[in-house]
């Protein structure tokens, strides 16, 4: 099936005082229409930069982004403005992502004004109220200010704003990590319902393994700027074909009391990918490291049907 979004060899380098930071280093994936790709990893792995680069909120260093076959990175400013009504983003922080000087209706209505989607005030108001209903925001909040509302309701405003232009693709950048669990469940359900109703395609970025499992069809695991493993969600949790994914999953505090045995946990800490050496980036922490791991970049290949891994020993883990 033709993917709605395809990312090829995306790179974003930042030049810092210490060297070149390879925030996103050769990332490729495709997302079929109507499905969700979960992008998971720890802080500093480049998942947020990937999301922003696709929308060109950050200009990527190189690579290609194809949205419905159109080259996003070559779009002129006016083409980009048009594209942005089809590609939207929902932010992590429900506090800083809403302008504190604007009311709920102004925030949700702004995109409609920018893209002239309403002929008059009346139509604008009707459309805003429809959107509010869609995200289950009470009608009486029409004129309220964001600071009067809790995190969950604020996140609903962010979702309504993203939906206002009828996009087909939405980058969800940690949309629930600032929320309490009971509210998190409400928002996750809402996002799933909207996907079903409107046929949306999501790139779902998160650090939370249980959330990403719940939301995604396919999951890509990032480590220091690269995707190390990609697989269908269920399959990934059954068996991991990369030692980092294994470590990530075994580090989750399970709901089972005393579930953790005394086995070894992953040693060491994440470094940052500044002027990385050739070889696997996980090698310094890897419990299964071999000499060849540090000699050359491991290829990201299909190790089993539908499963991709960048570990040279992936076949042994099947």
């Amino acid at each position: 099936m033709e993917p709605l979004l395809e990312v090829r060899h995306l790179k974003k380098y930042f030049h810092t005082g210490y060297g070149t930071l390879h925030a996103v280093d050769d990332v490729s994936f495709r997302i079929p229409k109507g499905s969700t790709l979960g992008l998971v990893g720890e802080s500093g792995c480049g998942k947020t930069t990937t999301g922003r680069s696709i929308l060109r909120l950050i200009e990527p260093t190189s690579g290609e982004v194809l949205f419905k076959g159109r080259k996003v990175l070559d779009a002129t400013p006016s083409e980009l403005r048009a594209l942005r009504s089809e590609m939207q983003i929902i932010f992590q922080d429900p506090y800083s992502s809403l302008n504190p000087r604007m009311t709920v209706s102004q925030i949700i209505g702004e995109p409609l004004l920018i893209h002239r989607r309403a002929r008059d005030k009346k139509e604008l108001e009707r459309k805003v109220r429809d959107l509010m209903e869609k995200v289950e925001l009470a009608d009486r909040l029409y004129g309220a200010y964001p600071h009067e509302l809790d995190g969950g309701r604020r996140q609903r405003i962010g979702i309504a704003r993203a939906l206002s232009l009828h996009p087909q693709f939405i980058v969800c950048d940690e949309p629930v990590s600032a929320l309490d669990v009971s509210v998190q469940a409400q928002i996750l359900n809402l996002l799933k319902d909207l996907q079903e109703e409107l046929g949306l395609t999501y790139l779902f970025i998160t650090h939370d393994m249980s959330v990403v499992k719940h939301m995604s069809d396919t999951i890509a695991v990032m480590y220091l700027g690269q995707i190390v493993e990609m697989a269908p969600a269920e399959a990934l949790f059954e068996k991991q074909l990369h030692p980092y994914t294994q470590a990530l999953i075994s580090a989750i505090p399970l709901l089972e009391p005393g579930g953790w045995k005394d086995e070894e946990v992953l040693k060491g800490e994440l470094s940052s990918p500044i002027d990385p050496q050739p070889g696997c980036r996980f090698a310094p922490r890897c419990p299964m490291v071999k000499s060849q791991c540090t000699e050359q970049d491991p290829p990201f290949v299909e190790s089993a049907k539908g499963r991709f891994s960048s570990c040279v020993r992936a076949k042994e883990m099947i």
Partner: peptide, 17 residues
């Protein structure tokens, strides 16, 4: 650098706005 400014950019708003 606040996210609401980024959000406006993502919505296709021009710099002036």
């Amino acid at each position: 650098d606040q996210e609401f400014v980024e959000a406006a950019k993502a919505l296709g708003a021009r710099d002036g706005r």
